[in-house]
Amino acid sequence: MNGLPIDPALLAPLAPVAALVVALVGWSLVSLVRKPAQYLPKIVWAVVIVLAVPAGAVLYLVLGRGRGPALVDGDAR
């Protein structure tokens, strides 16, 4: 039961895509820990991010990431 033979030359172009997906999921999880979440509890967002790769990470970043405090004039200096 070897499965399908896979040529490594065909996998090489997928390596950058896989790296970007891992970075996106990692960024989403770090953001989830650091910022407030909207619409769902943080643990549910974490499950969505991990199980629905990469759609869960995109959903969290678009919909679930809470807004931080509003900036005031003195913050930019």
Results as ranks from 00 to 15, higher is better:
residue 1 M to I: 02
residue 1 M to S: 03
residue 1 M to C: 01
residue 2 N to I: 15
residue 3 G to M: 04
residue 3 G to H: 11
residue 5 P to S: 15
residue 6 I to H: 15
residue 9 A to P: 07
residue 9 A to D: 10
residue 10 L to T: 12
residue 11 L to T: 14
residue 12 A to W: 09
residue 12 A to Q: 12
residue 14 L to A: 09
residue 16 P to V: 03
residue 18 A to F: 15
residue 18 A to L: 12
residue 18 A to C: 14
residue 19 A to M: 04
residue 20 L to T: 01
residue 21 V to D: 06
residue 21 V to K: 02
residue 21 V to M: 11
residue 21 V to L: 01
residue 21 V to G: 12
residue 22 V to D: 14
residue 23 A to N: 00
residue 25 V to K: 08
residue 26 G to D: 02
residue 27 W to I: 11
residue 27 W to A: 07
residue 29 L to H: 04
residue 29 L to C: 00
residue 29 L to M: 02
residue 30 V to E: 06
residue 31 S to G: 11
residue 31 S to D: 11
residue 31 S to P: 10
residue 32 L to M: 03
residue 36 P to V: 03
residue 36 P to E: 08
residue 37 A to I: 06
residue 38 Q to A: 06
residue 39 Y to R: 07
residue 40 L to H: 05
residue 41 P to E: 04
residue 42 K to F: 00
residue 46 A to L: 11
residue 47 V to H: 02
residue 49 I to C: 02
residue 50 V to Y: 04
residue 52 A to E: 03
residue 52 A to S: 13
residue 52 A to M: 14
residue 54 P to L: 01
residue 57 A to I: 09
residue 58 V to R: 03
residue 58 V to Q: 08
residue 58 V to G: 06
residue 60 Y to D: 08
residue 61 L to W: 00
residue 61 L to D: 01
residue 61 L to I: 00
residue 62 V to H: 00
residue 62 V to E: 05
residue 62 V to I: 10
residue 63 L to G: 01
residue 63 L to H: 01
residue 63 L to D: 04
residue 64 G to C: 01
residue 64 G to H: 08
residue 65 R to M: 07
residue 66 G to L: 09
residue 67 R to M: 12
residue 68 G to N: 13
residue 69 P to Y: 10
residue 70 A to P: 04
residue 70 A to H: 08
residue 70 A to W: 07
residue 70 A to Y: 05
residue 71 L to P: 10
residue 72 V to C: 14
residue 72 V to T: 12
residue 73 D to W: 09
residue 73 D to M: 13
residue 73 D to K: 06
